[in-house]
Design a protein around this nucleic acid. Structure first.
Lengths: 252, 252
DNA sequence: GCAAAAGTGTTGCGGGTACACCCATGT
DNA sequence: ACATGGGTGTACCCGCAACACTTTTGC
């Protein structure tokens, strides 16, 4: 009773959906594509598509990401946890959504992936999306549920889960560096934390904290004045993936 | 190019697999069933089965759990995060596994769920499993990969991910109470932490910590001497789901 | 000089650890 | 009486928040 005859298993469609986040203009933004066909024609949606018969789930997510943005993403094979590559984007599995009626056409199970990317040039539309854009998550996610812009399918829920994951994960991992270019300053990293958490942090204590956490930052030797003021040291992401002690998010 | 014709989507089988954990005899144990048919006939495997055409993923996991153990599980609908019910088991989505060759028969995508349950009477076999048992995870997971008992399919990997999730989640959430009966003592809760983390904790500091964390424990009024010694206060799980400050796991 | 951002020093406080110590039961 | 586990008090230590203060550039 607990299993069906495998030769007569119920057929499902399996897709991947991508929550692609970046920091632009001091704001956390998500990549959206406009749907060019029903259902939800004209709505904004998360990028994604069907998993092909012979590819893995992370592989499908990576392929869709490249098709939509040209980004190369790095994830640890086989596991949901990933190691951040200094260049390129971080990709990890987020969660799977399979409500029976989430797609009116058929039974679709969607495996959502979270991508953290450095600031990119304006996105190029790909596939069946008639256009694409970066949207600040504060506009997409109102304080109350179903506030802000409605997205296609259950993508508003998926986006909210992805943002929540990103916000909590930069506390105890070095993932915030995935939002930065290869070389970055402590101040730029701090602005990432401030944008993702929506808070202001003390620059002095932040500096001490991140430079004092072993394995978080690697001095690259150079300096820059691109933020104005005194020249700042440049760093690259260190090898550490888990931060000890963690960064502390001020209570909202 | 990025999407298939939806009317010709590639067909997948979708299953749920369960990582059911409990604490027995001071040890963290997982529920296994013996496979009665190929492939992997005679191997131990995680309980699970196919998702039915009209049920949700968490619903399928809950149904399989009831079929295998008789347990009722509680999860927050729609979200992967769940609220712990004092009685009954905690259920949350773990991750999804979809390597193209993970099942030799066909393309199967499996959504794994993590269940934390109080100590149960000996499990009853259900469905197509010829028997079932609780196995200490230390025996199943060797220090090196592919050490210990080999499980069917990629279930060893899924189990490892589930155990890791449980170990980290009891740090910052009140989930450890899901391993306890409705009423429990501080000492019993401490033994849960010790079993899951594989460490010994200072009873005095542990007591102060958990009773001082708001919303973690609710005094039920009664006392018990079932552990010997001075009578201990009985508690039930408080409403809090997130622990502030978190429990600190001693560095291994 | 002045503004702006990068860094360093210092102090106070809160929470953790490591104990010493007392309490209430069963045998 | 003694063993066993429950619970409280206290002293030290480390890490963070909250500043004051110095450094090095562009304008």
């Amino acid at each position: 009773m607990s299993r069906y005859d495998p030769s007569a298993f119920p057929p499902f469609a399996v897709t991947v959906d991508l929550v692609v986040l970046t920091v632009r203009d001091h704001e956390l933004c998500a990549l959206l594509v406009r749907r060019g066909e029903p259902p939800f024609q004209g709505y904004w949606a998360l990028p994604g598509g069907f998993v092909r018969p012979d590819e893995g789930l992370a592989e499908a997510a990576s392929r869709e990401l490249a098709e939509e943005t040209g980004l190369r993403a790095y994830s640890a094979p086989g596991h949901e946890t990933a190691g951040p590559g200094a260049a390129g984007a971080h990709l990890e599995q987020l969660a799977t959504y399979g409500h029976p009626q989430r797609d009116p056409r058929m039974r679709v199970v969607s495996v959502a992936y979270l991508v953290l990317a450095p600031d990119l040039p304006t996105p190029r539309a790909g596939g069946d999306a008639s256009s694409a854009r970066w949207a600040p998550v504060t506009e997409l996610l109102g304080k109350s549920p179903a506030d802000g812009v409605p997205l296609a399918f259950d993508h508003g829920l998926i986006l909210a889960d992805g943002v929540e994951r990103a916000r909590s994960k930069i506390e105890y991992s070095s993932l915030a560096t995935a939002f930065c270019p290869t070389e970055f300053t402590v101040g730029e990293l701090r602005r990432v934390y401030e944008a993702v958490w929506g808070v202001v942090l003390d620059p002095r204590n932040f500096h001490r904290k991140v430079t004092g956490t072993p394995g978080f930052l690697l001095p690259s030797g150079g300096t820059t004045t691109r933020q104005g003021g005194r020249p700042a040291q440049l760093f690259t992401a260190g090898g550490a993936t888990v931060l000890n002690p963690p960064m502390l998010r001020p209570e909202s």
